[in-house]
């Protein structure tokens, strides 16, 4: 089962390697990890996507909590949340495909962030399925390279209004 875990940590050197070491040292797998500052610059949030049986993920959550620099761990598996990932894709369409690429980018609310004679670099933001779908569609037009940001996620507020 895949879990997205949001981890609040002290913004200190070495913390990322403690978290990464926890995974590597115990043979747990990290699918993606992204880190950034929060409102409070002394705190960072890591969004970690991992996969494992329930018991393994329970251990991961507990082990994360046990790290001295970890302030809060939230497994978003059972929590209503919004997920986003950004991807930048360098595409090499033929002259005839160029219009199609731009059309697809528009449908996916992507932006062209760079272009050259032979390439377009397109930025797409969305949840995983959207990104996968876009990649699938542009693949036949020649994808030279892409980079993904890793997922970030935030819990939805329960009461609206």
């Amino acid at each position: 089962m895949r879990h997205t875990i949001s981890v609040q940590v002290e913004n200190k050197f070495g913390v990322l390697s403690r978290v990464a070491g926890l995974f590597s040292g115990r043979g747990y797998n990290i699918e993606s990890i992204s880190v950034g500052e929060t409102l409070d610059p002394k705190i960072s949030v890591m969004t970690i996507v991992t996969r494992g049986e329930n018991q393994i993920v329970e251990q991961i959550n507990k082990q994360l909590n046990k790290l001295i620099d970890v302030i809060k761990v939230q497994d978003l598996f059972d929590v209503d949340h919004v997920e986003r990932e950004m991807v930048m894709i360098k595409i090499t369409p033929t002259q005839e495909q160029k219009a199609e690429v731009l059309r697809l980018a528009e449908i996916f609310r992507g932006r062209v962030v760079d272009s050259s004679l032979k390439t377009y670099t397109i930025e797409i933001t969305g949840d995983e399925s959207k990104i996968e779908a876009f990649l699938e569609l542009v693949k036949p037009m020649g994808v030279k390279e892409f980079v993904r940001s890793g997922k970030i996620a935030i819990a939805r507020e329960r009461s609206r209004g």
């Binding site: 018991q55 329970e58 251990q59 507990k62 082990q63 909590n65 046990k66």
Partner: peptide, 8 residues
């Protein structure tokens, strides 16, 4: 005292 010891 260590929650990670439990159900490990």
């Amino acid at each position: 005292i260590d929650p990670t010891s439990i159900r490990k």
